[in-house]
Design a protein around this nucleic acid. Sequence first.
DNA 1: CTGAAAGCGCTAACAC
DNA 2: GTGTTAGCGCTTTCAG
Lengths: 340, 340
Amino acid sequence: MSRGPRRATVKDVAALARVSPKTVSNVMNGTVFVRPDTRERVLAAVEELGFVPNLSARSLRNGRTGVIALALPDLATAFSADLVHRVVQVAHERGMAVQIEETGAEPKREYDLVSRAREHQIDGLLLNPIRLQDSIVVHDDQLPPVVLIGEVEQHKVDRVLIDSRQAGYEVTKHMLERGARRVAALGGKTGATGASATSIQRLEGYHRALREHGMEPDPRLQVYVEEWSMAGGAEAATELLASDAGFDAIVAFTDSIALGAMHVLQEHGISVPGDVLMTGFDDVEHARFMNPSLTTIALDRHAFAEAAVDLLLTRIGDRTSPPRAVAIPHELVVRASTTR
Amino acid sequence: MSRGPRRATVKDVAALARVSPKTVSNVMNGTVFVRPDTRERVLAAVEELGFVPNLSARSLRNGRTGVIALALPDLATAFSADLVHRVVQVAHERGMAVQIEETGAEPKREYDLVSRAREHQIDGLLLNPIRLQDSIVVHDDQLPPVVLIGEVEQHKVDRVLIDSRQAGYEVTKHMLERGARRVAALGGKTGATGASATSIQRLEGYHRALREHGMEPDPRLQVYVEEWSMAGGAEAATELLASDAGFDAIVAFTDSIALGAMHVLQEHGISVPGDVLMTGFDDVEHARFMNPSLTTIALDRHAFAEAAVDLLLTRIGDRTSPPRAVAIPHELVVRASTTR
DNA sequence: CTGAAAGCGCTAACAC
DNA sequence: GTGTTAGCGCTTTCAG
């Protein structure tokens, strides 16, 4: 492998600036005060040699890499995409780079990430666990710095959370107040095996709202969705229609599921909101622009990303302080899909 | 900073297995043949000590980090999201991790990435340059391994490309064949400053199709879109309607622009495809599920990601071979938005 | 096939 | 404020 001309090292810079390597290091890191003229000389030498510090060496020495990982189940999802966007932005502002990992349906991947974090040259990990009960996080106790994101209930590590139970309650209540009597849930089903924490909580809120309105949840109105994508939503809606359960509203567990479901309804000549009311979750960009626009649960995703990154950086700096939880508020955004 | 119990090193493993560090290294890397019993002993020691090699040390030694970077202008876009998803997947299959960077509107960020790749601990870079003329890639010639992705015309570095000119031609022709006479273009405008390579090429194809049908491009039918998002598309459609130019078809330069534009048309009581035909680019998931579903240009995005990653890995292995270009074929997918 | 020694480039510790 | 020394953990010589 050809490697081009040798790159300049601290030593070269030190020689040219007639200082010691340590001084060069001090200037580069800016932690210690360096006399202005020395500083100038060093910077000039850096410039002249095109010196770029080798971060591998730095991390080997001080144990920090300046990289954090963001691990999500599915990167292609609209919600994930937005989260990646924001985390990268916030991390960059904090001087950190972001490595992306996809855990998909493989719990092994998640396990690997957590246990081999150091090998992967990362200082810490933002993790959206698929199913917490299987997660290594609750089983292992010699973890790298980790912040859990999403609806996670545990108290061993830091987390950023949304009150999905409450949100599920709110959207369902909203439908009922607008006259719906047969509200279907697309995304989770009572007792479904392999259900995510998110789906369980949204379902619980849905149940509570129904009961408050004197209705008993009907299992036939609950459809489990394996993959929370548009395709998954379309499949679920097809199943719901085939079941002949009869419904006049749909609580979809993500905006993407809603879009897929709505597509199927419209293919069947069913009007939204005329015949069926529909809501989503997350308020991703297409919620506003789809036809009809979608009533959904919005949250401040920038605040979400910021909280996650900052919790992680704090944790990297101090591994012994007690775990903290930050809750990000949400809000029902009413649009055309529930407005008759 | 507390650091927990010291981690095992090659030395520890070597001591426990009663071999030399070199042998441990040989076993871990699997490049050299090691006698089975020695090998077993080493692996047992690795297991017992929970040894995880330190990649920072390894990279310091051999100059490779096992990480590549993917730099895109905007990560929140549906197309980017899908690309990230696929690149991460392919890279993982090849044993590489992926660092994500967002270059946004800042050419400085792009410059920084390319020039300081080594500092960022990456072996190479997949880059979707915003505007090639400003790009460092064409100006600098001591580059790290780089593969350009998207519509890029240059011959100094490897690239994966789509024939956007041809694609733009095809969608426009499709509309004209379906009877459109006033075809608007949403995304680029003749002579727009700061136009991306992508927009220029799509526009050229659009022009060619018009001329072939005996029409002269009308500047009033071309709307420049700064941000290629749904919001950008909505804005552009609003502008187009206000201009009173009169149109019966819209070639949107991405599916997201199309969705935003369609939303605005529908708000104005304009029917797609009844009053106006519409097409997009990229065939992202929502193209299929929006209402009406969108005629668009599809391409094998997995092949795209695979080509990009493999070109980069080849380049990392051999920095002197002549640059290669891989073209990914595309295909017009006809859906409801152009079917009356 | 395995061992011993040297060093990748940087910074922590300690001197001055 | 700056210099010296040593070593982070790995792999690459070069011997054996």
